[in-house]
Design a binder for these strands. Sequence first.
DNA 1: CTGTTAGCGCTTTCAG
DNA 2: CTGAAAGCGCTAACAG
Lengths: 336, 336
Amino acid sequence: MIKSITINELAKIANVSKSTVSKALNDKPDIGAETKKRILDIVQQYDFSPHPFGKGLKNKFTENVGVVFCRDMHPISANPFYSRVLEGVEAEIAFNNRNLMLQFVTEEQTKGIPKMLRERQVDGLILIGSMTREYIQLIQSKDIPIVLVDPKFEIDSCSQVVMDNEHGAFTATQYLINMGHKEIGFISGDMARLSFKQRFTGFLKAMKYHNLPVNEDYISVGGMEKGYEHVLGLLKRKNKPTAIFSSNDINAQYGYKAVHDLGLKVPDDLSIVGFDDIELSHMVSPQLTTIRAYKEELGSIAVRNLLKLVENRDQRPITSVIPVRLIERESVRKIN
Amino acid sequence: MIKSITINELAKIANVSKSTVSKALNDKPDIGAETKKRILDIVQQYDFSPHPFGKGLKNKFTENVGVVFCRDMHPISANPFYSRVLEGVEAEIAFNNRNLMLQFVTEEQTKGIPKMLRERQVDGLILIGSMTREYIQLIQSKDIPIVLVDPKFEIDSCSQVVMDNEHGAFTATQYLINMGHKEIGFISGDMARLSFKQRFTGFLKAMKYHNLPVNEDYISVGGMEKGYEHVLGLLKRKNKPTAIFSSNDINAQYGYKAVHDLGLKVPDDLSIVGFDDIELSHMVSPQLTTIRAYKEELGSIAVRNLLKLVENRDQRPITSVIPVRLIERESVRKIN
DNA sequence: CTGTTAGCGCTTTCAG
DNA sequence: CTGAAAGCGCTAACAG
């Protein structure tokens, strides 16, 4: 650790006691205006920052927030999404003048209670991604404020920030319908994921709302990054959908590949709508029409809510739903 | 901060003084074997972890390592690469039982000395990505151990971890030559970047080594994510290259799009080799032949070197060069 | 309004 | 081998 000026030395320089310096630093009322100014000037001049360890030992706040980032083993899958969430988290933490302590875990490998929590180095925790229910409960048992971002499961009595998955999926499906499609397929990764389940619900509701039958043959779900296989399967049947709603962009991309490999084209032969709006989706051709999730927003709201929980320990759990919106690009063709 | 058992209470339970507990905890020699065992058992039983603030205040080590991650404004560009580096950094930090404090900056916006450094919350710093020279010097002036990962510029007297860019580029180019190509183009982003400069040098050396002329018309560089424009430009000339070495995978991807939009195909009409081996590169069709950079390795070596510097403050700067290797996939055609 | 004092949780000297 | 005491940098209670 680099040593530097302390409150004691500062006090000596200013010719006051260290408690007076402390008062100046912490905007306490019982201090004279000129004294305060004089001290603050010296603080400026010497570029003094109070040492957080001294503070923390005393007042029990670390001013650090912990982030446990559950990364996917299949790195492309969820990571481009969660990386953006992390950026939102970081920005909001910095804005609130806290420090961010990061730990990665995978769904399978969590290494028990995070070190930063065991050592009480953080005031609260943001949990990003699809950690197991058991892991979350383990952390909850330590009685520290936590906020979940896009959890894999429905978790009761826990603050969380989620997307408006159902509405997004409804919108996506309705868009396809409005573009004249009636034979609409649905593909998705692991349906155990809450988000995907909700997106499926939104899909079904839109179909129902528009009095369209849902053809079981047009639905292909499960696995990790199996979009290629899903789309291939759907297109090899005798009667095939004219459009597909994919519950995430990655699988939509893999779908592109399947269409391409069959010698067909998007959107001429198959229209596709995705969900998430990752960077990749406007990089490919044709650019993917998709539902944009405001990923940084998910992160920053999570931090804001966490900070509320930290400041007020008997605040009830907060659930925030972040809106989404349709981004029209080139992957859907109007028919009839 | 969650309160929990302290060394004092532990001492009481074990019926010894807290100094004795401390000795047991820190493997000091002057303590009886049975006493030590008894204490350690109680430590276990109560799941005690010494509070790092108490320790830090005393011994001047925080056991935190700071990571300043310079993210690209154009998020797809460098980020899939650096994200993997970050994973390597995290893993190594966890392995060494440290905590990771993260701050994002952009090249343009650095917000001065990172808070974690100003407050001396970290023992050392890993700087990932293309921050400006001025920023690095600012941090260096604080006299804290730092290690640069893939810096944008040549920086003297500073520990750094870099890829074997020149050799990788040589290998890539030579591979194209061995596949029968003679008219080889080179595209790249901003040539101010050290890595790209070195990759260009490797390209030139390979051409020279094989007595092939370098055609200025086949070289198109500069800008951010301008691979599309670069390739389009090269292919619209009357005499065009049969192959292109792209100094990174992202631009190679954009190159695909250009080829595609001209109604041509990779590798039939143009062979392409990239550099970096990001996830995307085996997701696209045809899968991209590229030079793999071991990104996690870059990160973990950086941490290992940093820790050496922390432990031994008069250790000279360490530079590590991480090897790379060619990954043959589908984007190169053998000709003649 | 200002300063003295105690103490947060820990390590380290040093006396026993 | 063990423990008492001091002190790391800070804040807060309380006298003055």
